[in-house]
Computed example of a mutant assay.
Amino acid sequence: MAQTPTEAPAPKAAPIKKGTLVKVSRGAYLGSLEAAASDPTPPDYLFEGPGEVLALNGDFAQLRWRLPVPDVWLRLDQLEAF
């Protein structure tokens, strides 16, 4: 009996936890509820990073950038490791 080739599982991204440096995924953010509730043109620093995760609460993370801007809460699925 011939064996069928199996694909190796894709490597999982490191989990996002407190202190992780992240940036916002443009594709996941644009068109989201968070984007609709914000300025029509998001600032570039969101997508360039790095932002630091200050706190986690369920599916959301509080982010702080190294700029004089307010902290924000975004969904974890909109973030990617920097």
Rank of each mutant, 00 (worst) to 15 (best):
F82Y: 15
A81V: 11
D77H: 13
A28R: 04
T4K: 14
L63K: 08
D59S: 14
L54A: 10
E48R: 15
A61C: 13
E7F: 14
A81K: 03
P9R: 01
Q78M: 15
A36Y: 04
W73G: 02
Q3E: 14
E80H: 12
Y29D: 08
G58Y: 12
P42D: 00
W73C: 01
A81P: 00
S38K: 02
D44L: 12
A61F: 05
E7S: 12
L54R: 11
A10Q: 11
A10N: 06
E52G: 11
G51T: 12
P42F: 01
F60T: 15
P43D: 05
S25M: 08
D39V: 12
P68R: 11
W73I: 06
I16A: 02
P70M: 03
V72L: 09
P68S: 14
P11N: 04
L54D: 15
T4V: 14
G58L: 12
A81N: 04
D39K: 11
L21K: 08
R64N: 12
A37L: 09
E48D: 14
R75K: 15
V24Y: 01
P40T: 09
P70V: 07
V22N: 01
P40D: 13
R66T: 10
Q62C: 09
E80S: 13
G51A: 15
D71W: 00
T41S: 09
T20D: 11
R26N: 04
E48Y: 08
A2C: 03
E52D: 09
F47N: 03
E48H: 13
